[in-house]
């Protein structure tokens, strides 16, 4: 592939690149960071990246919101002029799921902090080994 081809690949499909980069940031934070809250933030970035992926596949160039006015009733609607609403609806559920996961994770982090007086993983493991 030529240089122009590569540039085209990146620019034409930039939404996928953004979601992949975000996902890698999230995964990296979950693996490399030693602070539990940073890990939890990484987890949330990972989930948000996937939400972005879903939402981006719904868009169409030059299309509008999928809301029908009074004058549209009973008429044929050209699918090319409205964006696909289904992925948005799915992602509403996924947002709820990610909020719930975040809530549980933060509650567990609080429980951990109360027990070990720290959120740094190295120090927690040292305490676990002591006891």
């Amino acid at each position: 592939m030529t240089t122009a081809g590569y540039i085209n690949l990146i620019i034409a499909k930039y939404n996928y690149w953004i979601y992949i980069v975000l996902m890698c940031i999230g995964l990296w934070a979950m693996i490399a960071k030693r602070n539990l809250i940073k890990k939890i933030i990484g987890m949330n970035i990972l989930q948000t990246a996937i939400i972005l992926f879903y939402v981006s596949i719904a868009t169409k160039k030059g299309a509008t919101l999928p809301i029908l006015g009074h004058h549209d009733a009973g008429h044929f609607v050209d699918y090319a002029t409205v964006i696909n609403p289904l992925p948005h609806v799915l992602m509403l559920t996924a947002i709820v799921v990610s909020v719930a996961t975040l809530g549980v994770a933060l509650a567990l982090a609080m429980k951990i902090y109360n027990r070990y007086d720290t959120l740094e993983e190295d120090e927690i493991h040292a305490r676990v080994r002591e006891s």
Binding site: T101, A105, I124
Partner: peptide, 13 residues
């Protein structure tokens, strides 16, 4: 709680 948080991370991925 620590085991569970680890489970949250792996399970969410």
């Amino acid at each position: 709680a620590l085991a569970s948080l680890n489970y949250v991370f792996m399970g969410t991925i």
